[in-house]
């Protein structure tokens, strides 16, 4: 049985929005790459080793996310334009509870 898919809206820095479906279990970084969303570089391919997949999570969705790991927290210290809403999208897994999540993308992933 193919995995369930849920909606994610990625909004580029320019304001251009892309609403796509991402399979359960995939990371929100992979969802962006799969759908050619510009603005997520993901150099390391999801190993939480590069901090180039930063997203800003819309306030109403933040509480639904798991807390940041030590690794993610530190990686984020090195990403450009970090805000309280910042997360690394490679660390966020798609699931029913995130159906409809809205993510804003930074201007650049490289400081």
């Amino acid at each position: 049985m193919p995995p369930a898919k849920y909606k994610v809206t990625y909004i580029e820095d320019s304001g251009k929005a892309h609403t796509v479906e991402v399979a359960e279990g995939w990371s929100l970084m992979e969802g962006a790459v799969k759908h050619l969303i510009p603005g997520i570089d993901a150099d390391c391919g999801g190993a939480c080793a590069c901090a180039t997949c930063q997203v800003y999570v819309a306030p109403e969705w933040q509480a639904k996310l798991p807390p940041k790991s030590d690794m993610e927290e530190t990686m984020l210290d090195f990403a450009p334009d970090v805000k309280p809403a910042s997360r690394l999208s490679c660390q966020l897994r798609m699931g029913a509870e995130l159906d409809g999540i809205v993510l804003h993308l930074p201007k650049t992933q490289h400081a």
Binding site: C48, S69, D70, E73, T74, D77, F78
Partner: peptide, 10 residues
């Protein structure tokens, strides 16, 4: 040890 790695790299 992510902080050690990240800061170490810097």
């Amino acid at each position: 040890a992510a902080p050690e790695y990240m800061i170490g790299k810097k």
